[in-house]
Computed example of a mutant assay.
Amino acid sequence: MSLLHLQLPLSQFKSLSLSTPFLHGTSSAILTKPSTANHHRHRHTYLPPIRAMRSLQGRVICTTNDKTVNVEVTRLAPHPKYKRRVRKKKKFQAHDPENQFQIGDLVQLEKCKPISKKKTFLAIPVPKRTAAKPKESQDLGLSLESDSASPV
């Protein structure tokens, strides 16, 4: 017995609802007859894509402008033909509100709202690296022959 031969009332199928909002590319709002009042009330608001905050590190190369520093950021990128990693440099202008940076300082650039036409970064100081000093030879409590050598 096939489904065509079954005589079921259509009212049973109209009362069914979908368990998920989208089924095979159609939504439940499309399947039911939308009213104009509900249609405007259930607008979907789409959020913009989330982008990671851009953060760069570079060295200050110029401090002549007031509250502005020029920072040179160096990165390694593969050469298009030779596939060898080469240094690529780019200059950015960053906001330095207290004029605290000198030429040669290492700074971190944080993306912020545009301050001027070219200035969209804020300069933040990077703590200086403390070089690990090589440990001196540890004293094991044993005297060396060269220390105890006496003239004969």
Rank of each mutant, 00 (worst) to 15 (best):
R41F: 04
R41E: 08
R41M: 05
R41L: 07
R43W: 02
R43A: 09
T45R: 09
T45S: 09
Y46D: 11
Y46Q: 10
Y46N: 05
P48K: 03
P48H: 03
P48T: 06
P49N: 03
P49K: 02
P49Q: 03
P49M: 03
I50W: 08
I50Q: 13
I50E: 14
R51E: 13
R51N: 12
R51V: 13
R51C: 10
A52I: 06
M53S: 09
M53V: 10
M53E: 12
M53K: 12
M53C: 09
R54M: 11
R54N: 06
R54D: 07
S55A: 06
L56S: 04
L56M: 08
L56H: 08
G58Q: 02
R59C: 08
R59E: 11
V60M: 04
I61C: 06
I61W: 02
I61V: 15
I61S: 05
I61R: 03
I61L: 08
I61G: 03
C62F: 11
T63G: 01
T63A: 04
T64P: 00
T64L: 03
T64A: 09
N65G: 06
N65L: 14
N65W: 05
D66S: 14
K67L: 13
K67Y: 07
K67Q: 15
T68G: 06
T68A: 13
T68C: 15
V69Q: 00
N70Q: 12
V71G: 00
E72V: 04
V73P: 00
V73C: 00
V73A: 00
V73W: 00
T74M: 14
T74G: 10
R75T: 10
L76I: 08
A77W: 02
A77G: 01
P78Q: 10
P78W: 05
P78E: 12
H79F: 06
K81F: 15
K81G: 14
Y82C: 08
Y82I: 10
R84V: 15
R84D: 11
R84T: 15
R84F: 04
R84G: 06
R84L: 12
R85K: 14
R85C: 03
V86Y: 08
V86M: 14
V86K: 15
R87H: 06
R87P: 11
R87I: 05
K88E: 09
K88R: 15
K88G: 00
K88W: 02
K88H: 13
K88T: 11
K89F: 08
K89R: 13
K89P: 01
K90Y: 07
K91G: 01
K91S: 04
K91W: 00
F92P: 00
Q93M: 06
Q93C: 07
Q93N: 05
Q93P: 02
Q93L: 05
